[in-house]
Design a protein around this nucleic acid. Structure first.
Lengths: 337, 337
DNA sequence: TTTATTTACGAAACCGGTTTCGTAAATAAC
DNA sequence: GTTATTTACGAAACCGGTTTCGTAAATAAA
């Protein structure tokens, strides 16, 4: 049984190919009677149009590309769910691409998008990414792009984020109110939009409460490697060096617990910990982790919705706009009270 | 700047379209000299071939579809990473589809694959799926499919799994050796291939150690809903009803911890817990969770490799074969010793 | 030297749809 | 009753490549 094409369908129906095509698309040019006949034959022959032929002809693919650094990460996994929920509703396919935090991969992926493979893009930049020529190039080809979570402020498009600055500010304040004087801030590259905002929130809160700022208290992580881990460890080893930690991304919570276990540091007795995190297990860690829980699903959903809406218009237009969906702090035992 | 096509490229080079096409594909029919000229012009004009035109013409898309139930799940997230690593190496794109455990969605997705959108499929069936007409249909259209983790034994294709039976057997034995007499087995639908194998492992281990089998000790979870949770809770509430639990999938570990906390049951004092799980946080839970850790990344990698290899041949052929990659038990504090 | 091969390329069909445009027939407007 | 619209459809161009096939020129074989 050879694959049936629209041609076969047309012949079977004694109609022209164009008529059949229009009938399937429910065009107003076609009579209801004919549409019915076509629909029936489609069922009968189990006709499924070739996806690529359609996309080529119509110059749109009903597909969006999602570019994220990592999928083994509650935030991004949940965001994907949010994106999917909207995409599905609008009949869009979702292509997921992982950069694994590599700028080179990110470039390759965006370059590929210039092939017309996707109608639009949702993206959270890799932490290696410091420039945006590749994004500009893509935008120049007319492919709309919406940022979520990790953005580029310089680019003229919509971005969906959480209240990074405030959350970090509040988290810091929470620790301060709990008596912390020496608070560490752990982060990946501080070029990243989210990191720099969260860092400022942290710093401003310290200043507001008359606590000293120190570069030494900002612990950078580079490649999730042993080195970063040892770096944190040596920092915590020197006694009295810290009594509080803010992890600016979920991935960094685990090394903290690990080091504390190794060094026999009690959380929250010796050191209080709060982390940006969407971990399902946060409440069952030892001790339960106080988190800044980001509205990951909502962020994904909103990003997708904004993109879908833009794609729906004949003249695609994405305003430079920042949509902020607030995080919530969930206080647990890793911070006092 | 209008999009440049191969036609423009050809005109610029004073060559025919076909020659340019072949040159780009590094065909032996084209002289090195010409290839060089073409390559240079491609660079110069920043030519990027239209993805859909290519796929339509060549009748293959260099794209594989991955169908999984969920992405907020360490196992599947890691498996995706494994798949991606191989796909990327072979120049394949990866389309990820989530069924959210819905049979209807799974059908819709596979139906769409009949459109030629993907060259091959990697799949882990939803837990609602009890029949496989939709899979048969897809295979009939010539799209190869490889199962991983959750499979269908009846279907003539390769499947990549872990040693579900043995792992469960060993896990059960571990609990028994730790003194457990009444061991619960928590699972989703026991139609699922993995569940039924794990269940048999559990049962056989009980029998081998002269412990009674009881239907009451098999706790089914249906929709991750409150009801399931309460069901588990009421089971654990009645005193002496259980001294050990095996969670057959990662997602079920959390409700156990939750219930135990609520009921003030000590793990492992009152009840020992072991779970199939790839949770990164397993070691930092309270108490640290003993896990059967599946080689998720490897499974994904292998599944992709098998598929890629099949796709590489002119006559695609996937033998009915079971590739088993063993899990490892990591003993932690949620089980004694 | 003649014939057989190989090399390097182009013309044109093709992939399977979509879209534009033209038009006959039916209906509405004047 | 004549002209303007609308309705319903088909022919053909088109989307942007790939692939088949034919062929002149160059090279090798006989």
């Amino acid at each position: 049984m050879s694959k049936i094409t629209i041609k076969i369908l047309a012949k079977e129906l004694q109609l022209s190919v164009s008529t059949v095509s229009k009938a399937i698309k429910d065009s107003h040019e076609i009579s209801n009677e004919t549409k019915l006949r076509v629909t029936e034959m489609v069922k009968k022959l189990n006709y499924i149009p070739n996806a690529y032929a359609g996309s080529l002809g119509s110059r749109n693919s009903k597909t969006i590309g999602v570019v994220i650094p990592e999928v083994v990460d509650s935030f991004f996994a949940l965001a994907i769910n949010g994106i999917e929920s909207i995409a599905q509703k609008n009949g869009y396919h979702v292509l997921i691409y992982l950069t694994h935090e590599s700028f080179e991969k990110e470039k390759t992926i965006l370059k590929d998008f210039e092939s017309g493979r996707v109608d639009g893009v949702l993206m959270s930049v890799s932490r290696e990414t410091t420039q945006h020529d590749h994004i500009d190039d893509l935008l120049k080809t007319g492919v709309p792009l919406v940022f979520f979570d990790r953005t580029f402020d310089e680019i003229e498009t919509t971005q969906i984020t959480t209240n990074d600055y405030e959350s970090a500010y509040l988290a810091t304040e929470h620790l301060i109110k709990n008596g912390c004087k020496k608070i560490l801030f752990l982060s990946f590259s501080n070029i990243l939009s989210i990191t720099s905002k969260r860092l400022r929130g942290y710093q401003d809160a310290l200043v507001a409460h008359n606590l000293a700022l120190s570069e030494d208290n900002i612990i950078p992580f580079y490649k999730e490697s042993k080195i970063d881990y040892l770096n944190l460890r040596s920092k915590l080893e020197s006694p009295g060096s810290a009594d509080g930690i803010i992890a600016s991304v979920e991935k960094l919570a685990i090394p903290i617990y690990q080091v504390c276990e190794e060094l026999q540091l009690n959380i929250p007795g010796d050191i209080q910990v709060i982390s940006f995190s969407n971990l399902e297990t946060a409440a069952f860690l030892n001790p339960p982790l106080t988190t800044i829980t980001q509205p990951a699903f909502e962020i994904g959903k909103t990003a997708a919705a904004v993109l879908m809406k833009a794609l729906g218009k004949k003249k695609i237009e994405l305003l430079k706009e920042e949509i902020i969906i607030p995080s919530t702090i969930v206080i647990r035992k890793s911070t006092k009270c």
